[in-house]
Design a protein around this nucleic acid. Structure first.
Ligand SMILES: [Zn+2]
Ligand SMILES: [Zn+2]
Ligand SMILES: [Zn+2]
Ligand SMILES: [Zn+2]
Lengths: 133, 133
DNA sequence: TTTATTGCGTTATGCTATAACGTATGGCAT
DNA sequence: ATGCCATACGTTATAGCATAACGCAATAAA
């Protein structure tokens, strides 16, 4: 359970922006929100995002090319070794993060049967949330 | 079991290019391979890709922003109503498509419990295949 | 002090995807 | 045949996402 180091100014700015957002934000969304704080270039945001993902404080949503703050950054076990899944509402943008041990176990079985060594697993359900149906 | 219509020239060119490829190709990879056939603009490729995905003949890999031909285009049941998963080797590019009913069922349970209406589900495992480990 | 590491800022570039326009073609009802 | 509709096509321009490459600054070993 290694704690991540203190965040730098840019990392803090990006994390707080994501925490304050309702749903997910693209790197350029974040950049636009942080111009007032002095950020000017995409790389400043991408470098912070890379670190925050590495620290397990945020997640990247592959099907949206966007980022969202972790729903439970304290849960190191689930995020370090587990599989994180997301349900994404295409209507309102709500993102629900969840962890399902049965799915994870089933994927592990498949991987073992094929001698496939997983590095990162993406599970994203796009659709309509209960409010938007 | 509705058959898809005959493919247009551009659709055929794109499909054959993907069928001939070892792994996945980006839209621009495909465009480069088809310049000799007269294709000049990204839209010509993207429009064909959209249709081929709609017909269930190819899949989009969200974590790669790339496309791959379907491993079993005849299996309409699995592709129309089921969840398709991919194991992607980051070393050699090999992509293995598979379908797991237990995972699909588990996702359905989650969706039912949250009244979430799924439209498209992405499952992609990035890692190293048995040959590359 | 020297060296290595990490983060920062900037410029430039590359890759991915779509908007908006007009043209062409084929099916079909009148 | 004529008009109408739906679909595909080709082109130009633009939008959106991501990284290469450079040098500087601060910090932490050695
Ligand atoms: Zn999380
Ligand atoms: Zn919603
Ligand atoms: Zn398939
Ligand atoms: Zn491999």
């Amino acid at each position: 359970m290694t704690a991540h180091p203190d965040l730098t100014r840019n990392q803090s700015l990006v994390l707080h922006t994501l925490n304050a957002a309702n749903g997910s934000l693209s790197a350029y969304d974040i950049l636009d929100k942080l111009r007032a704080e002095g950020l000017r270039a995409p790389l400043q945001v991408y470098r912070a995002l890379d670190k925050l993902v590495e620290f397990g404080l945020i997640h990247r949503l592959e099907s949206l090319n966007a980022f969202i703050s972790c729903a439970d950054p304290q849960d190191h076990e689930a995020h370090a070794h587990g599989v994180t899944a997301f349900a994404i509402c295409d209507s309102c943008g709500q993102v629900t993060e969840f962890h399902d041990h049965a799915i994870e176990h089933r994927l592990q079985q498949w991987q073992a049967s094929r001698s496939f060594k997983p590095e990162k697993t993406t599970i994203e359900i796009r659709g309509a949330c209960s409010n938007c149906s």
